[in-house]
């Protein structure tokens, strides 16, 4: 770990974005093939990278389609390409370019989007993103990394450099707490967050990204296990075997996404048949124009910690 990266990760006031790009910056020092294509996006980390490596920091302007097309050409020349933009624009504005260049052609481009779910909480529905898991996982060969804390962010940055498949990294804009000491394992793609050393639990929350924070808060009030799915596809069989082994009878799949096609759909598609009861907890299927912060928005959809505690503990 580079000194700068370590400092970034230890500083909890920094974001997943900073942890990710700090690590990429460290790797750029000894891997001349790493290239960053940005859609007019900045971070404090980039201020250093763009000075150190001006030819490998490429700003295409506000042009997401061109970002992917150019990234594809660079990848065809052997470059290890990261593309970065606000997630809602990165995934949806140029979805066809992603489909053709990344999925159909199989080019190993890492698409990094910041702003999963309600990350841009008060920016309105153009900046919210509740469909990315659904659309990206619909593409054959596309790997999704849904980052839940800074250590995970750094690890995903490292792994992305060596990947030979297209890769979508969804980052949150908000600060997230460190969740687990458990090492990133691309063969399983999930980790169990044992926040309170829960014993004799009979239910679990499977979630991803920022919602781990909400789920962990729930687990402080209700005896429940939290499972962080940080990679899609993940090893669902292993996940269910692990839960059955500890006596889980019910699973809540929690996400800050629309229900169709999201994490809950993925779990249901992959888990059948299973003796475990599954309930999906997601956004209402409507756009959100209410403001007042992320928790307020979540509350409107019943996916904030307090609403979940009431629901799971049977108060509702």
């Amino acid at each position: 770990m580079g000194k700068d990266t370590k400092n970034v990760i230890l500083n909890q006031k920094l974001s997943q974005r900073d942890a990710f790009w700090s690590e990429v910056g460290v790797q750029m020092a000894h891997d001349e093939d790493i290239v960053i294509v940005v859609v007019d996006m900045s971070t404090p980390v980039f201020d250093e990278i763009r000075v150190k490596y001006p030819h490998r920091f490429i700003n295409v302007g506000i042009a997401e389609q061109n970002a992917i097309s150019v990234a594809a050409g660079l990848a065809m020349k052997g470059k290890k390409v990261f593309v970065y933009a606000i997630a809602s624009f990165m995934v949806l504005r140029c979805f066809e370019q992603i489909r053709v260049n990344c999925s159909i052609m199989g080019l190993p481009i890492t698409i990094v989007g910041v702003g999963a779910g309600f990350s841009y909480d008060d920016s309105g529905p153009t900046h919210h993103l509740f469909e990315d898991v659904a659309v990206m996982r619909s593409l054959p060969g596309m790997l999704i990394h849904s980052v839940s804390d800074n250590t995970m962010s750094k690890t995903v940055a490292q792994k992305s450099i060596e990947l030979t498949v297209p890769n979508y990294v969804r980052l949150d804009r908000h600060i997230t707490n460190e969740l687990s000491e458990e090492q990133f394992d691309s063969k399983s793609g999930f980790r169990i967050i044992d926040e309170n050393s829960n014993q004799d639990v009979s239910s679990a929350i499977i979630t991803t990204g920022y919602m781990n924070k909400v789920a962990v808060n729930v687990s402080k009030e209700v005896k429940i296990l939290v499972v962080d799915v940080y990679q899609i596809p993940c090893n669902i069989k292993k996940l269910f075997d692990s839960l059955i082994e500890v006596g889980i009878k019910k699973i809540y799949v929690l996400e800050e996404n629309f229900l169709p096609g999201g994490l809950g759909s993925y779990v249901l598609e992959m888990s059948n048949p299973t003796p475990i009861e599954i309930e999906l907890l997601a956004m209402d299927h409507k756009w959100v124009y209410e403001y007042g912060g992320r928790e307020a928005n979540q509350k409107l959809h019943g996916i904030d910690a307090q609403s979940l505690i009431r629901k799971i503990s049977g108060d509702e």
Binding site: S69, V70, G73, L74, K77, E96, Q97, M105
Partner: peptide, 22 residues
């Protein structure tokens, strides 16, 4: 390349030319 949808191959060519320069 694989190409059927228009407006994409040209951007790929631009990326290849840039990669060649790098």
């Amino acid at each position: 390349i694989t190409c059927g949808s228009l407006g994409m191959g040209f951007g790929n060519a631009v990326g290849i030319a840039l990669g060649a320069k790098l």
